[in-house]
Structure formats: structure tokens, C-alpha cells
């Protein structure tokens, strides 16, 4: 089983969401990736308005419309627009086919403004994905670090959370969240530096590590190489490449009646 937690519609050819999705699947097929999770539309909007959130989620809904056997989707939400985000969660997750949320760089996840969004998604058993990066050359104004993620995790200790990009600088990110057992890491969207998976398995255990690529901006290949090359057990590799994501998705899939 090879499932990819982290894909986008921006950065790939196609005039429509459908064409972009078809192209993404074409490359996923070449790499043996059976299912992808897609979130955010195009063009990328780092601090979207409430209307832009809706438009971007509509693009994802359209992209998935012919690919429910191959893809899941998360709703793009923002702590800058809590009411609109709650409405999008209801529209796209409670009443629609999406199965989680994506929080990007509009506001720090350590801010309590995000709490209502996290709580609402958790009530629906949706998956919660928060982008994090610890950049040596400076973060965007609202961009969360892995330390921000740890603060959020401490406020919601019973809620499963995903630390996107492992904080980018993964040697810092893994340390920042390792004490918070409700936090898993996403491996995608950083250079394929050797050793990331070995350190993560050592410090977190394989059960808290999820393969994601951040394609199409990143290559499926470079990101998959992080896991394929790692000196870990076949059981750990299997969990990372799909087992853990499936486990996180199962509650909401069952709630939606999806086999």
C-alpha cells in the first residue's frame, strides 16, 4: 500500500482542476502511488480571504469528482477567518466528501484563534494537517514552526495532529514535537536529505511518521526516496508508506460509510 498524504493542484499543467488532477495521477501511477490526498487549489494563496477559501475548496472538490477511488481531499481553512472556515468544514466535510483540513501560513497555530477550527474538525473525526517550517532565513509572518505545533498539541492532547513538513528543518522539528504523542509528522516538501526517516523512527516510532510528497512542486521520486532508502524494518516502512495514514483516516471514512 502506497498512499501520499500531501499533494496539491498548483504547479502542474492543466487549465481545469480535472486536467490537473489527471496529470497528477499520471505521475503518481508512474511511481506506484495508489492514493493521494489533495488540498488547496490554484494559484497558491498564503493569506486567503473567506471567498478564496471557498474557491480553492471548490477546485479540490471538482478535481476529486472523478477520482474518488484514487484520492482524498482536505478543506483549506484559515484562523484569520474562523467563521468562514467553520462553514467550509460543514460544507466540505460534514456535508461533502472531504476528510480533513489544511492549515497553511495565514496565522500561527499556537494562537488560540485556531482552536475552534481544530475542535470542529475533531468532532467530525477529520484529519488535521498544519504546515510547519523552521527557516534559517526567516519564516513568513504567519508561518508556524514545529514549536508552534507543540503548543497547539499541548492544548489538544486528545486530538491527532499532523506536523506538515516535519518543520522543514527536520532535526529541529522532530525534537520539537517528540514529547507530544498526538502529533504525527509529514515527510514531504523538503530536500531528500539522508537520515530523516531513521531519526524519526528512532525518536518518534514508525507509527507517527507519514509519507507525503508535496507534489507536484516536489518530485514524488525524491520524497519517496527518503523512505525507500531508509535503514528501517519492512514493518516500519509499510506503516510510513500508507498504514499510518489509513489508520488516521479510518474513523472519518467509516463515519461517511466509505469502505
Amino acid at each position: 500500500m502506497l498512499w501520499d498524504l500531501h499533494c496539491h493542484l498548483s504547479g502542474i499543467d492543466g487549465d481545469t482542476p480535472d486536467l490537473r488532477m489527471a496529470n497528477l495521477i499520471r505521475f503518481a501511477d508512474r511511481m506506484g502511488i495508489e492514493r493521494v490526498v489533495v488540498f488547496m487549489g490554484y494559484p497558491f494563496a498564503t493569506d486567503p480571504t473567506a471567498e478564496e477559501l471557498r474557491v480553492q475548496n471548490d477546485q479540490v472538490l471538482q478535481a476529486l469528482s472523478h477520482w474518488h477511488d484514487r484520492a482524498f481531499g482536505f478543506a483549506y481553512v484559515s484562523p484569520k477567518h474562523v467563521d468562514a472556515s467553520l462553514a467550509e468544514i460543514d460544507r466540505c466535510i460534514r456535508n461533502g466528501p472531504l476528510v480533513g483540513i489544511k492549515l497553511w501560513v495565514a496565522g500561527h497555530c499556537s494562537d488560540t484563534a485556531v482552536d475552534a477550527i481544530v475542535q470542529r474538525c475533531a468532532e467530525l473525526q477529520g484529519v488535521i494537517f498544519q504546515h510547519t517550517w523552521n527557516k534559517a532565513n526567516g519564516n513568513l509572518p504567519g508561518e508556524s514552526t514545529a514549536e508552534d505545533m507543540a503548543v497547539l498539541a499541548a492544548r489538544h492532547p486528545a486530538t491527532p495532529l499532523i506536523c506538515g513538513h516535519t518543520g522543514g528543518d527536520w532535526e529541529l522539528g522532530i525534537r520539537a514535537i517528540r514529547a507530544h504523542l498526538n502529533v504525527s509528522i509529514d515527510l514531504g516538501g523538503s530536500d531528500p536529505t539522508a537520515g530523516i526517516v531513521e531519526m524519526a523512527v528512532r525518536e518518534l516510532g514508525a507509527e507517527r511518521i507519514i509519507f507525503g510528497s508535496d507534489a507536484p512542486g516536489r518530485s514524488f521520486a525524491s520524497q519517496l526516496a527518503k523512505v525507500n532508502s531508509a535503514d528501517i524494518s519492512s514493518e516500519s516502512r509499510s506503516l510510513i508508506l500508507g498504514g499510518n495514514l489509513k489508520r488516521l483516516l479510518l474513523p472519518i471514512l467509516r463515519a461517511k460509510g466509505i469502505a
Binding site: 508512474r30 511511481m31 518530485s219 526516496a225
Partner: peptide, 12 residues
């Protein structure tokens, strides 16, 4: 980088 990264890119 792992050797696999560039080799898998050829497959991709």
C-alpha cells in the same frame, strides 16, 4: 541525498 532519489526521478 539517497542514491534512490535521482534514480527514481528517471522512472518518474
Amino acid at each position: 541525498f539517497p542514491v534512490e532519489s535521482s534514480l527514481l526521478k528517471l522512472d518518474e
